[in-house]
Design a binder for these strands. Sequence first.
DNA 1: CTTCATCGATACGCTCGCGTACCGATACGC
DNA 2: GCGTATCGGTACGCGAGCGTATCGATGAAG
Lengths: 204, 204
Amino acid sequence: MTSQAAERPETVGTSRRSKITPEREQEFFDAVLNQIRECGYDAVTMEKVAASTRCSKSTLYRQWRTKPRFVAAALRSRRQTRFTGIDTGTLAGDLREAARRAGEWAVKDTTLLQALGHAVTRDRELAQALREALVEPEIAALDEILRRGVERGEVAWDNPALDYVPAQIFGVLRARPVLEGEDADPDYLVRFVEAAVLPALSLP
Amino acid sequence: MTSQAAERPETVGTSRRSKITPEREQEFFDAVLNQIRECGYDAVTMEKVAASTRCSKSTLYRQWRTKPRFVAAALRSRRQTRFTGIDTGTLAGDLREAARRAGEWAVKDTTLLQALGHAVTRDRELAQALREALVEPEIAALDEILRRGVERGEVAWDNPALDYVPAQIFGVLRARPVLEGEDADPDYLVRFVEAAVLPALSLP
DNA sequence: CTTCATCGATACGCTCGCGTACCGATACGC
DNA sequence: GCGTATCGGTACGCGAGCGTATCGATGAAG
């Protein structure tokens, strides 16, 4: 166990003589994530990733050992939140803005989540990386928005609907493609927030 | 096109000399769906299905020609709705009951949906079969519940939240495993309906 | 009872990806 | 500059699954 953690490349350590620049590394990561979106996790092969980036299989195996570790690294490189800096002054405004932004990223993110959805149930590291990359940052940002709303007194702290706001936004994002056959765009999400989320919070 | 429709086995036609009883057929269908839930769509192979049911690959290929058509047939065999016969007399009661039942089936259904989620984007017939089997019957039943609620005057016909009730329930069903790492059980769904769905409809 | 399509079983050639091992060439650390 | 580890590339043996073909046995139709 200890040795396993030690030999992991993780982020480029203090003294490793890799010739791969961070930009080059990002090329690998972009390639594998794109292939996942296109073909699904199972159908992605190290060979195709290598070919599409003009690197050799040897390099990929040397650096990341296995496909799940490689994909996990690619996911971690995308760690970010799309909800940062939202502050319109009102809870309703913040949620509308969050919904709009969620809709903008919906296609890329839900496709990736969809493609990884099943693989995640079979690999803990992959699951963890996916949560860190696509889920937790957004949840945290949403919670922050809600917290400010409560502080401003716009909604009671014990309003039971508060707990379900992230699940609802995340949910319709994934539900609409299945239910209606088209992706959840910003318009749809904003309308959803106005029609369902805000009323449940007793907001106009 | 015409010939394609003609040579499809679909339901056992008028004069096909198949030795496969409906029970035997259902064994094949159960096997492939279980394997999909376990390994994911891509990893399912005709060979494994054949082996696990003691039939030969020849038979599967003879009957269904390709994997997607076979899986589609398996899905169609599961066509059903879990929301039939719900009628507690009030909209809130009906929705609570629907949520409870949805939670009961959540594990099996969301696993299947998850496993097929990406394959569905690459095969129209598969997508259609999945909608017919797992989505449309439930939507229809939910709409019926809502319609009765409107007729009873419990909620205004033009309440904008009405349109989003199916998406809400379907959504959290798929969102919770990702957000909290555990499946949406009946308890969770009922709490969700009471905390978010009913308030959005201005119901107690 | 006869006929014959379909059954389960097995074998075949083929493609694909795996993971490893090698090869000069090259760029990094000293 | 000089070693040397890593680079891109290629080749290898291996196993898995595909889709087809062929076999004797069997059960349904007439």
